[in-house]
């Protein structure tokens, strides 16, 4: 078991109690929707197997199986209410916070099912960071937004100045804010606030980053900056993005999954899915015939 997975386990959990699975093998019986050539070719970082989700009696996700490839951007698309955001939040158990929420199925990170007993949720969400639709900086200075997470996780404060620059550079924000780090995060524009949130997410050193409609509140220029940032981030991180914008999914992602009515309809390389979708309903959705 590698170090990442050890960190996922709660202190009382014994390593030998949790055996990592071969994530490629999980998709042997899913070739109708998950192309075998992709599973063979790319390294899998996360694997979702027969995931179903209910809010009370409302069945919102039904038997989703999907690989998330390492250092790639996977886009989740589909009409409103198809379960995209629920699926995204299931990837780091954010839905655990919702009382009426119920999950069945498995989500693996590096071969470990994150829904098994003995998983440390704080560590899990540290490893799988999230950026939300609306920029939501903390009501504090730009600097403190970055240092908040590392301090909570017990970093040596001597490293903080270096970290601030490092993460703001990674989020393509350093040049714009380096001389105003003490100012309130709310003094930034919407696009800058969203990049600050990305820098904040990076500051706790995640390995997977989930983006839930990160550009829906931004203008085209700010959107382009975030999209470029996502493209750069995939060199170090694995990215999953939910978007309603077909052009954005086509521009930024390497793989695309199309959801409809809580089911995964089609998954393929973005290039193939947007040029020659296999299923008629995918074609109808991406070309604006419904949804």
């Amino acid at each position: 078991m590698n170090i990442v997975n050890k960190k996922l386990l709660a202190k009382e959990t014994k390593e030998e109690d949790i055996v990592p699975v071969d994530m490629r093998a999980l998709f042997k019986d899913e070739t109708e929707i998950i192309p075998e050539k992709l599973v063979k070719k790319y390294e899998i970082r996360m694997a979702v197997k027969k995931l179903s989700h209910w809010y009370g009696n409302n069945h919102v996700l039904s038997g989703i199986s999907l690989p998330i490839f390492k250092n790639k951007v996977t886009a989740i698309i589909g009409p409103s209410g198809c379960g995209k955001s629920t699926f995204l939040r299931d990837l780091n158990r954010m839905n655990d916070l919702i009382k009426i929420s119920r999950v069945r199925g498995k989500v693996y990170l590096d071969g470990i099912n994150i829904y098994s007993e003995g998983i440390d949720l704080i560590q899990l969400r540290k490893k799988i960071g999230m950026v939300f639709q609306k920029p939501n900086p903390f009501p504090m200075s730009i600097r403190d937004n970055i240092t908040y997470g590392p301090i909570i996780h017990g970093i040596n404060k001597a490293y903080l100045p270096g970290l601030i620059k490092s993460y703001l550079v990674k989020a393509a924000l350093w040049d714009e804010v380096h001389d105003r780090l003490s100012e309130s995060a709310f003094s930034l524009s919407g696009g800058q606030q969203q990049r600050l949130c990305i820098a904040r997410a990076l500051s706790i050193e995640p390995e997977v980053i989930l983006f839930d409609e990160p550009c829906s509140a931004l203008d085209p220029h700010a959107t382009a900056k975030i999209e470029d940032l996502i493209t750069k981030l995939k060199a170090e991180y694995t990215v999953v993005i939910v978007t309603h914008n077909m052009q954005q999914a086509a521009r930024v992602s390497d793989f695309t999954a199309f959801f409809n009515l809580g089911e995964l309809i089609e998954f393929n390389s973005t290039r193939d899915l947007f040029r020659s979708p296999i299923r008629k309903i995918t074609e109808e959705y991406i070309s604006g015939r419904f949804g």
Partner: peptide
């Protein structure tokens, strides 16, 4: 309009 799939083809 940035069409996709058969419309683009």
């Amino acid at each position: 309009h940035q069409p996709f799939a058969s419309d683009l083809r």
